[in-house]
Design a protein around this nucleic acid. Structure first.
Lengths: 224, 224
DNA sequence: CGCGGCTTTGATGTTCATCAAGTAAAGTGG
DNA sequence: CCACTTTACTTGATGAACATCAAAGCCGCG
């Protein structure tokens, strides 16, 4: 299934550096793939052949480690999926799977490399975008590693609230995944959520969460 | 002070993509700077104007946070110093200072960007190198965040031993800096070093460390 | 010499993981 | 559609890992 570049919101991310007649070629080479929730998009140790970005849905980037799964990042629409190590490595050092039903756009990595070789503005654009994305992941990680459970959980709740653009939203990941994301045990994640509920900062009905006191929640995220 | 490109070992890192007559121009635009130990090379929030890499010495990349200094990475010769966010951001989000007396090579960032625009192979090369470096930092961080104090300290000792290419070496950073690097308290870092000494895995005379049982130390690094 | 910073050790308390046990929810086969 | 199984979620109790506090020794430096 080819994607229709004229209506693809992703085009502007980097294709505005390509002249219109060239663009046609790349659009024809680009394909879309749809995934159901929980399906695997990339598997750790797969060889990197494609350049992938997320058009619709929600995905998680995670590593399989001896200590269990570790979630590196949550990917939103317009994020790159084959983000890290695309140009750095031969193999993926992480997996990607769909949290919600998702649609990705795929280009052959060699085509992208060819573009970098031939098109200076495109090269500069992609360096900027990829670096920005990797930086965000690294600094987010540096930030939370200094914080305690309470702040980490508050951080996750705020992020997903912002993602849904609503104070009342459905948490798209399980408690277990929240634990893997903040690097703590399931039980303590749940306990912290319960504490926030008891303090009337949030309301909880299973996966449905409503933020009652956003200022207090932000304060909890930022302290210590 | 200009650097003599013919004898600069850094030339091959990325300048092999530039043709010899062009090279002369860039070499002339490139300058060297020397720093004494503890001097600041980059300050957090400085505007990013230069592309810097380390020719000699040893540096630390760190952030000033409300919870104190946090060391992100140790930079070795041939590492990029203006590593992260060079192309992603306007301002440095971290500081760099010399641990040992150091020499850096500096290019104007606009010159590098111009090279990317005009020289495809150079662009591809620099994407690869920068990404590889950032990836290493991120994945190192993901690794140690799953490990306990014992393993983290073992990890640091091994890294500096490998850096000096000797089982017996002088730890170039203070205990405090070790604590900032592994994200734990000074006291517990010291306690762990003492434990390793008591177990006859290392010998310690202040900053001088000798690894007695390298296999056991690697095992401690890798468990949990 | 004395001051401040770095290092070290012990004692104490906090934060968190783990274990155990139970409830709710969601899938599964008859 | 219901018994059955499995998986997700929740709470409490306990112990391990780690931070913090306190005190003392060491070393360099003005």
């Amino acid at each position: 299934m080819k994607c229709d570049c004229d209506f693809c919101s992703l085009k502007t991310i980097f294709f505005n550096t390509i002249n219109p007649n060239e663009l046609e070629n790349y659009c024809n080479a680009k394909i879309q793939r749809a995934y159901k929730a929980k399906e695997n998009i990339i598997k750790q140790n797969d060889s990197i052949q494609e350049f992938i970005y997320l058009k619709e849905g929600l995905v998680k980037l995670y590593r399989d480690t001896p200590a269990g799964n570790q979630i590196i990042s949550i990917g939103k629409p317009l994020d790159f999926v084959s983000l890290l190590s695309v140009f750095a490595d031969e193999k993926y050092s992480y997996s990607v799977s769909a949290i919600k039903d998702s649609v990705v756009c795929v280009m052959n990595l060699n085509d992208v490399k060819k573009l970098i070789l031939e098109n200076g503005p495109f090269a500069l654009r992609i360096i900027t975008v990829v670096n920005k994305a990797t930086d965000r992941i690294l600094f987010d990680y540096l930030d939370i590693s200094q914080k305690r459970l309470y702040s980490r959980v508050a951080n996750v709740i705020i992020k997903f609230s912002e993602l849904s653009q609503n104070l009342s939203f459905e948490m798209p990941i399980s408690r277990k995944e929240m634990a893997q994301l903040v690097g703590m045990s399931i039980e303590n994640v749940i306990r912290t959520i319960s504490d926030l509920r008891k303090d009337n900062i949030i309301k909880v009905y299973g996966k449905d969460i409503e933020i009652l006191d956003f200022e207090k929640l932000k304060h909890i995220r930022d302290i210590s």
